[in-house]
Simulated scan of single mutants.
Amino acid sequence: MKILVINGSPKKEKSDVMHITRAFLDGMNDAEENEVKIIHAVDQHIEYCTGCFSCMRNGGECVHHDDMRGILEEILDSDLLIWSYPLYCYGMPAPMKALLDRTLPLSSMAMHKVGDRYEHVGQADFSHLRYVMICGCGFPNSKHNFEPAVAQFKLCFPNNHTIITVPESPMFNAPEAQIVTIPRLEKIKDAGRQFAKDFTIRDELMAEITSPMIPEDQYAQIVNGTVQ
């Protein structure tokens, strides 16, 4: 399987969330060896979408000539897209959002009704793609934090998606927290192994990997204690 990881964190490989993503990939590779490529959105030359819709009218040809053309080719050549990013203002970081906006050439101006909503008709065949969202945040819980990002992801990728949201994610970059982060990463590897078999993660395991690693009030006290 060809897996394309789009890392939205400006920290690149040092991203808190990339610890989670790498564990998930390790689990997938335990089940079956995959071809994995990681793109750091912050390293790419991606101009902002101007909303001119030229790409949607002219067979996918964008007015910008930058790295996005090659990224679109890699997306279409992949079997699985993993969107890995930390929560920024209840959404994705700006470099990743610019990349997502520039996937517009995959769609045309024409639209059709799917269920109770309208969607643009594709200019390319990406029906084979599956999508995973792996998102972490610095708050100690998931409630009233991930909902906007999850809603956006489901609307952008309504089919074949899996969503993993992890609170307290800065702990993955804290060596002193390994007593709780190492067991959690092992569970995330298990999730990768399950996903590799049938593209699902059992509800019980998903509940475990998306829950706080330490009590919420304890986490908040630790964070507040580091504020100068």
Rank of each mutant, 00 (worst) to 15 (best):
D190M: 04
K2S: 11
D16H: 09
H144T: 11
N7E: 11
Q44R: 12
P175F: 00
E208W: 03
A207S: 14
E61A: 15
F146S: 06
R202W: 04
Y48E: 12
N160C: 05
A124Y: 12
E33W: 02
Y131A: 01
A124V: 15
T210A: 10
M92W: 07
M133W: 00
K14E: 14
A220R: 07
D67W: 14
N58A: 11
M68N: 13
L104Y: 14
E13P: 15
Q194L: 04
S78I: 12
I164N: 10
I134W: 02
P95N: 06
T50I: 15
G136F: 00
P175T: 02
H19I: 12
K143M: 05
D79G: 12
V42S: 05
R202S: 14
P170Q: 01
S54L: 13
P10Y: 09
P175C: 01
C62F: 13
E176Y: 08
D66N: 13
F53Q: 15
S211Y: 10
T226Q: 11
K187N: 15
R193Y: 08
S211K: 06
N160A: 04
H19E: 11
L106N: 11
P170I: 00
S142A: 15
D190Y: 06
P93N: 05
P212C: 05
R22H: 02
N159R: 12
C156V: 13
D190Q: 12
T181G: 02
V17T: 07
T181I: 01
A23W: 03
G8Q: 09
K2D: 09
R184Y: 08
R130V: 00
E147I: 06
G136I: 01
P170V: 01
S54P: 04
H65D: 15
V223E: 07
E147Y: 02
V150M: 06
M28I: 00
I71Q: 06
T200E: 09
N141G: 08
M111A: 09
I3H: 07
N224R: 13
N34F: 01
I20Q: 00
A151P: 06
L87R: 02
D217V: 13
Q228S: 01
Y85H: 12
A220G: 04
G225K: 14
C156P: 02
Q218G: 02
H144S: 10
P175K: 00
